[in-house]
């Protein structure tokens, strides 16, 4: 029974990774770069959520308290996190993508947005450290420790709600990408950026949309993380993103459904391997498998969309 309990815990943990993995895979699929602002946004949203709930925002705490009261400050936290992250995403888009063209194309050109995104990661981590310090920050969960059990298996209510919520969000997103006009434009850019411009897709206006979507995914995921696990710090994004990247690779780069399955699977794998072989050894099978996958089957387990065509 303990094994099943571990599987359930893993699935819950996977729920956190899913949205971050989808965010990574969207940016890689559309814009072909590994966006390290994703961990920054996840972490920043989680910290904002903590700060709003605990009244430690740099300003506006009293206003929030007057409007929402102590009991419903978590709603204010969600609003603050989503709005701030959406705005920040627009700023990041300007500096990581819009100006990123080397004078003469060459083999390391694709690294430019990667490098500026690392710059943003450093900015945000130190912004949080200098405002809230580098110690772990613990918030009080607004939902307490609600649990129910089926047989001997214990389920945490907030975790179930989060898992369902994240799955609904990403599934809706992927349906939207399939069906809508925006989705078609995005896929056109992903396939051939030059041709997309000719076909009347305004790349300059679509790319910020991609950034805001991925930013919001990170924000929701970060908010849910704070509610469920209550303890956050300036570096929580790095840990989560590392595993989410693994999930994304597993599902195939640029493949949204792959990232969903990969994210859930990697969460379960992490918990199971910690349970079976111990936390320290868990890294070896996970990353060893990914290394093999990247080298021998770069499309991932389900993938067909191999990005990095042409010069890359």
């Amino acid at each position: 029974m303990l094994v099943i309990q571990q599987l359930v815990n893993g699935l819950m943990l996977g729920g956190v990774y899913v949205m971050v993995a989808v965010a990574f895979t969207l940016i890689i699929g559309m814009l072909n770069f590994l966006n390290f602002t994703i961990p920054a946004l996840f972490m920043f949203a989680a910290v904002l959520m903590y700060a709003t709930m605990s009244g430690t925002l740099p300003f506006g705490n009293d206003l929030i308290l007057t409007i929402f009261g102590t009991e419903y400050r978590w709603i204010a936290g969600i609003i603050v996190a989503l709005i701030v992250i959406a705005l920040v995403s627009l700023v990041i888009e300007r500096f990581t993508y819009r100006y990123m063209k080397a004078k003469y194309g060459d083999a390391t050109e694709h690294a430019l947005p990667l490098v500026s995104s690392l710059g943003f990661l450093i900015i945000f981590e130190h912004l949080v450290v200098s405002t809230w310090g580098s110690d772990p920050l613990t918030a009080v969960s607004p939902f307490g420790q609600g649990t129910f059990s089926i047989g001997t298996i214990i389920f945490s209510v907030p975790q179930i709600v989060s898992l369902v919520l994240s799955l609904v969000v990403v599934v809706m997103l992927s349906v939207m990408l399939k069906a809508s006009k925006l989705g078609r434009a995005l896929r056109a850019i992903a396939e051939r950026p030059d041709a997309a411009t000719l076909m009347g897709v305004e790349v300059g206006r679509i790319v910020p949309v991609v950034y805001v979507i991925t930013g919001l995914l990170c924000a929701i995921s970060g908010v849910l993380f704070t509610i469920n696990y209550t303890t956050v710090d300036a570096y929580v994004g790095d840990t989560v993103a590392t595993v989410a990247i693994a999930g994304m690779v597993l599902g195939g780069l640029g493949n949204v459904w792959g990232a969903i399955v990969g994210g859930l699977f990697i969460g379960m794998l992490e918990v199971m391997s910690i349970y079976i072989v111990g936390a320290d050894f868990a890294k070896v099978p996970i990353w060893g498998m990914l290394l093999l996958l990247l080298v021998f089957k770069p499309t991932g387990l389900f993938g067909h969309t191999l990005i990095g065509k042409g010069k890359f």
Partner: peptide, 12 residues
């Protein structure tokens, strides 16, 4: 591997 795949593979 190339490009972003090589970045990920070396990281792994």
């Amino acid at each position: 591997t190339r490009g972003v795949y090589m970045v990920l593979a070396t990281f792994a």
